[in-house]
Amino acid sequence: MPLRLRHNNRKQVNYMKLSEIIKHVQGTVLNPEVQTDAEIIGGCGADLMSDVLAVVKPEAVLLTGLCNLQVVRTAEMADVRAIVFLRGKQPMPEMVELATQKGIPLISSQRGMFECCGRLYCSGLRSFETNMNGSHE
């Protein structure tokens, strides 16, 4: 069972270990010095950083096709736990350095957004974005 229950303020929260997420997306960790045993509560797939800032909740994994310094900054600001760069995008060294400094694991996957989100969703990692009509599961 990839999904475990964690008690958080007496509310049960589903989470997945980042190491399991890495397996599901067949990803490579780009800054192994940052620990990858974090507990991820949900996923968010987006390429527009303003969108990420608007909807993502803390402790989510961000899957994105965008690959620049602002992605790392956005993750820092929005308390995103880990970033998966899709389609084999390789971040520049300064991005890796910044992410390491901020303790954010960077993962690179050859797979695309559709496949990664699809596989993670089907493995039980739910969406972790604020539903825009307010009804969030």
Partner: peptide, 30 residues
Amino acid sequence: FINGGQASSHIKRAMLRLGASAQLARQCGI
């Protein structure tokens, strides 16, 4: 674009240092 976000990063850290909650620091940061 290279240094974009650095000021915000400093602001967020200052907020946390001052004892702001994670949520408050995040709101200000964003």
